[in-house]
Design a binder for these strands. Structure first.
Lengths: 249, 249
DNA sequence: GAATATTTTGCCGTTATTTGCAGTATTTTT
DNA sequence: AAAAATACTGCAAATAACGGCAAAATATTC
């Protein structure tokens, strides 16, 4: 059998089943493991497939982070996410909420520590799948079209079953007096459940949202352990939050 | 034998089988290996075929599609998805599995009828969110990096709570004797639960997967209500499936 | 048609490639 | 941290490619 024939056959198999084992290929093609390994290595070098430990996967199948569309105040959000990373430890169990700031956090998660990560957010879950060191658990439920997170009773119920070290949440609006508020009733109910499922709750929030309110209340500020903004610690806008027993990053 | 004759014969052979061994040619044409080697070298220089170690292959055999489309056999999968749409009714409650064929189904869902749609697949869920007429419920769980679907005990448990009209599932391998089989044990367990949660199960499967097996068994063919392939109903490849009480589309 | 030039072919020794094996290193899993 | 699975390295045998050479076949010239 010609090498080119084998290459063809391997590509076919990979495209058809998305993933193949070297051992299976070797048996199917009736050559040694070493030969298919070399073949796969070559095909990988030619960018015809992606070699993985023990086998190969098709190109379209590798989890590449989706390109980031235009995000408002992206640099601030990246700044916030980077600060929040300081809270993570090896083997931490965390939960990441939806929203663009939390999505940045997911993107920036380090790859050198093991993490177990719950999420309700579809985009966040996609990001997390691209991280080999993160075990990702999606809390299911009815999907809210505009926030792209799972909400509803089954979500809330599932949340009662877990307790994570940190949950990283966003919010629509924050106010020293009214606490965290939202536009959407279902989302509020879900966030309440998230907070209950967390030992500590970390609020990621750009400064523009400070001192604004909306109609449904998620929680008071005193249930928040840490608030992360893009502002420096001495910024005047944070003065009102300083005497509330909240860690400010 | 004239050189011209040999050249023609060699090209014929290559066109016919896409590949030839020099040793075979030498024997068939009753000349020495060196002669056919020289012949093939000339034909390669004339761009009539591609010379490779040990033989020759037809043009385009190597690197057939440098810029390959993201999805293998996309047209066939679209064809399958379109056929499957015929099963849907207004207010149907369905479940869509992961995999590229099922993803096409999600993409092609009509917008003129109301649907309630469960899914375990992240990409499918993203597609469904784009459909205003579809209520989407994600069955949560541990996310499998390879298949981008939720698997594990919590997923299986959640599936015991529902009963959908139709589930549309894919499979890695199908065989008349061994039924549906997969590469991944976790995925198999989850698919079993999906089938149990369905009044009727519809298998979406491109014909290349027919008559192939792998190590873990999802179910026998007789639990499948409908099988959708890209083939026409009278195709010989489907003969083996015809006397199994399965609706073929 | 014979002598000569040209091309083609087969053979041989050398070099290069491919392949499987065995031992070792690395990664993954338990 | 140990055990299992997978990857890598070097090596040797088998096979294939290449270059030179001479015999054979073919073409050319007289």
């Amino acid at each position: 059998m010609l090498k080119e024939e084998r290459h063809r056959a391997i590509l076919n198999e990979v495209e058809l089943h998305n993933r193949v084992l070297l051992t299976d290929l070797a048996e199917k093609l009736d050559v040694s493991i070493d030969t298919v390994r070399r073949d796969v290595k070559e095909l990988d070098a030619e960018n015809m497939l992606t070699k993985v430990h023990g086998g190969a996967v098709s190109l379209g199948f590798v989890n590449q982070s989706p390109v980031r569309s235009n995000v408002y105040a992206l640099d601030k959000k990246v700044n916030i996410a980077k600060k929040a990373l300081a809270l993570l430890r090896n083997n931490s169990v965390i939960l990441i909420d939806g929203g663009t700031t939390c999505l940045e956090l997911a993107r920036l998660l380090p790859t050198n520590i093991k993490l177990t990560c719950f999420t309700l957010s579809l985009p966040v879950a996609m990001e997390l799948l691209a991280k080999p060191n993160v075990e990702t658990i999606f809390i299911g439920g009815t999907l809210s079209r505009d926030s792209q997170i799972a909400v509803g009773s089954s979500t809330i119920n599932a949340l009662t079953q877990i307790k994570v070290d940190y949950s990283f949440i966003g919010t629509g609006y924050v106010d020293t007096e009214f606490g965290l508020t939202e536009f959407d009733w279902e989302v509020v109910q879900t966030k309440k459940a998230v907070i209950n499922a967390s030992k500590k709750t970390v609020l990621l929030c750009i400064s523009e949202k400070l001192n604004s309110q909306h109609r449904f209340k998620t929680c008071d500020l005193n249930v928040i352990s840490t608030m992360v903004t893009e502002l420096e610690a001495w910024d005047k806008k944070l003065d009102a939050f300083k005497n509330m027993n909240i860690q400010l990053l």
